[in-house]
């Protein structure tokens, strides 16, 4: 799978899920239908290009579309 295709799948997959804004890495790997260590390279690139962003509780990390979800709002220091 090339990067652009993966990006489209992820953006479409995450936009579809209205009720959630943050996802486990495994959810993303499942959307791509790839083994985790292969999916990781593509997903890393999406973070670098700011398509995705990390969210961390400190102990657990989640991924979301950049700017999606309530917390982003709270953190824009408005």
């Amino acid at each position: 799978m090339d990067y652009e295709e993966a990006k489209e799948k992820i953006v479409a997959g995450l936009t579809k899920k209205k009720s959630k804004s943050k996802f486990y890495f495994n959810d993303l790997a499942k959307i791509l239908d790839l083994k985790p260590r292969v999916a990781k390279k593509l997903i890393n690139q999406m973070v670098t290009e700011e398509v995705l962003e990390y969210w961390s509780s400190g102990s657990t990390s989640l991924y979301g579309l950049k700017g999606a979800g309530k917390q982003a709002h709270a953190e824009h220091e408005d």
Partner: peptide, 20 residues
Amino acid sequence: WKHGGIVGVFGYGGGVIGRY
């Protein structure tokens, strides 16, 4: 304290723990 956050440094998903 709120739970977690989006903060981090560019390219890193760890090393910073957001607390508000």
